[in-house]
Write a protein that binds this DNA or RNA. Structure first.
Lengths: 244, 244
DNA sequence: CGCGCGATTGATTCGGCTCAATAACTGTGG
DNA sequence: CCACAGTTATTGAGCCGAATCAATCGCGCG
């Protein structure tokens, strides 16, 4: 019996890294919580590991809490009417996902799946709402986040409506660079299939392939296997923004 | 001197209808404020009248407060890279606009202009933030609003990326119906030019004209002068959602 | 009544989607 | 380490939707 209890305790400790020492928290919306609040979080949260390709939550489900990404890379996508996936956002260490559904009181509007092995904490909705009710600064942080999300989304709507596929591709490459950064080789530090890129840009896989080849011809990028090397960021910006 | 003071007082009274008796407030985010809060609002707000076509604020400016629409119809649009307007949202009585920029701490991301003569109150940012800091229920209301905005926007991104122009047009007609309702004649109760419709759908004016004619042929709508009569809502929903 | 803007229609062009075939790659088991 | 199968990437050909350009029409208004 003792052993069982010990085992559970150890397992829990392993599975629940403390928020107080979580590196990802520093750059998250939880960065300015005090130690009391952190203890509360630790007591109620859970942490799970997901393998590449696994789903964290599905579009249409009811959210019982939010997820905070400890480590890994996650794509958020929705199903279009014809069954085609549209990638609407990415999340990485320090980002939270699934919160919007609780705030909007609507079912989850996107599916979250892992682009690589990931560690993700779960924070029950009560905890989240308790923070909002008691800590106006936290409310403001979340408001800033949702406001920026909306701002970005409405810019994206304009882009989708008005830009050519090639411009949108250039823009998405720049977005990926901002989100995931570049590795030592100047390549975008995330592994996506051509189909996934197409599902961001909102086009067909073949179009992405052809347009990537075009960008390569124009010396804006280089293709090294699956990796995309950014050769001329300024050129990509000019292309994406239609600056001559 | 006395006359001047009297005049100012009268003018202010006329220009500043009390929030307590504002019909639009009932359906706004301010619906559950208490009387103290309403007095505060009244003391600090201003109210302006705008004629059809006038601009309330411009994309890129810094927001000093938010606007609450008392009466009228307003379009929010952004300029695309090639100078083409993209309509991203509408506002009518009871809606607030311009708040997102304060929350995101970014310049205003859209231009607001009147589709008809409108009365719009201005609430300074201090008042708005004071409400958020002191009233968690108000915070939650705003959070719900921004969360829904984002949710709607990300659905729109998927639609823009994946639907045909005709489907998007059908969807926009349904959106207009939801937003502005129908008049006694079953016509969408807002006056928009073909170009403005095109700027919602993200297409060329000519395409809108041709596709409206198609919808008419299919008995989904009727065109009576500038007005669009909704004949078969269910049919439009099916078309927009690609249900066979 | 004529002016001018918005609406409409027609003709042409082109981007990008679809379908089809092939090549390269990944992981698996022998 | 290689062979195989299944997946992903690439290339080619053809077609269609929708953008563009151009011309005309219609209406509201001074």
């Amino acid at each position: 019996m003792i052993f069982v209890i010990l085992h559970l305790a150890m397992s829990e400790k392993l599975n629940n890294p403390s928020c107080a020492t979580c590196g990802a928290r520093q750059k998250s919306v939880f960065c300015s919580l005090n130690s009391d609040q952190l203890v509360q979080m630790d007591e109620h949260k859970g942490c799970d590991f997901y393998k590449k390709g696994e789903t964290i939550f599905k579009e249409g489900a009811i959210a019982r809490g939010l997820f905070c990404v400890n480590k890994g890379k996650i794509k958020l996508s929705r199903m279009g009417p014809s069954g085609k996936e549209q990638i609407v956002r990415f999340a990485k260490g320090g980002d939270i996902i699934g919160y919007n559904s609780m705030l909007s009181r609507r079912p989850l509007s996107a599916t979250a799946s892992c682009l690589e092995d990931s560690a993700v904490c779960f924070i029950p909705s009560q905890q989240f709402f308790a923070l909002i009710k008691k800590d106006p600064n936290f409310s403001l942080k979340i408001l800033e986040l949702t406001a920026k999300n909306w701002d970005d989304a409405s810019r994206l709507i304009t882009d989708m409506a008005q830009k050519t596929t090639k411009q949108r591709l250039a823009e998405m490459l720049l977005w990926l660079k901002e989100t995931f950064g570049l590795d030592e080789d100047n390549c975008i530090d995330v592994k996506l299939s051509r189909e996934e890129i197409a599902n961001m840009v909102g086009t067909a896989t073949e179009a992405v392939i052809r347009l990537l080849a075009d960008l390569k011809k124009e010396n804006l990028i280089a293709l090294e296997g699956k990796k995309i090397k950014m050769l001329d960021i300024h050129g990509l910006v000019m292309l994406a923004d239609l600056i001559d």
